[in-house]
Design a protein around this nucleic acid. Structure first.
Length: 211
DNA sequence: GGAATGATGTACT
DNA sequence: GTACATCATTCCG
């Protein structure tokens, strides 16, 4: 009885891990619609992911991993399915999901959430901002969910900070891709993914290229 | 509406 | 010193 339960639990966890072990671009797409949840000491907050960006290990000079491991980006080279949280511009936190196998250095940046639970807590953490801005932008969503550098390297399958995968993925037509935001190198790569029509994006998808 | 700006940790020249 | 996966504020048309 307990043995069955342990087997079930093990295979369930393996399946959860497998979600993170697909190709990074595939994970970036698959994360659209997943829920990011943080159970903190002061309460629970969660939001549906509506915007992501993939950062790759090869031919991607905009990626933090491009020049190899450093103390800051160490967790990006760690195990998949864990968090990479870094400080941006000295003041903001940015939350990433590590995707590639240990040592490779790929991750998906989460850029915007649609609030699902804990809006009051988010408002308390964010201060006087319009609700539509609670989780708009990578720095803001970290404040709203209470994500800090303490979460760097933590598991996203087991701990207080978790990804809840959707039972069924969005249709490909519901997701748009385009250039990433706020970078100056590799600007042409279409590695940003958004839920089409979402009111919660950090910014609208850029217009389709007309050549 | 948009452009400019300042706050500032980490990594690099 | 300079650049940077940002954000809120200020200034301008």
């Amino acid at each position: 009885m307990d043995g069955d339960r342990a087997d079930w639990s093990r295979s369930f966890r393996a399946a959860r891990r497998a979600e993170f072990e697909r190709e990074t671009i595939e994970v970036a797409r698959a994360l659209i619609g997943a829920v990011l949840l943080h159970q903190a000491s002061d309460g629970v907050a969660a939001g549906r992911i509506v915007e992501t960006e993939a950062y790759l290990a090869v031919d991607d000079p905009a990626s933090h991993s491009h020049r190899g491991p450093t103390p800051r980006n160490a967790s990006m080279f760690g195990a998949p399915g864990r968090a990479y949280v870094y400080t941006s511009y000295g003041m903001h936190r940015c939350f990433n999901v590590v995707t590639a196998p240990r040592g490779v250095g790929e991750a998906v940046l989460v850029r915007a959430l649609e609030p699902m639970a804990g809006s009051e807590l988010m408002r308390a953490r964010r201060g006087a901002v319009p609700d539509r801005n609670l989780c708009r932008g990578p720095g803001n969503l970290c404040v709203a969910l209470g994500i800090t550098r303490e979460h760097d390297g933590c598991s996203l399958s087991r701990g207080a900070l978790r990804i809840l995968w959707p039972r069924t993925a969005f249709a490909a037509s519901a997701i748009a891709s385009g250039p990433r935001v706020g970078i100056s190198r590799a600007v042409e790569l279409p590695l940003r993914f958004v839920l089409q029509g979402s009111a919660w994006l950090s910014r609208p998808p850029s217009a389709p290229r007309t050549i």
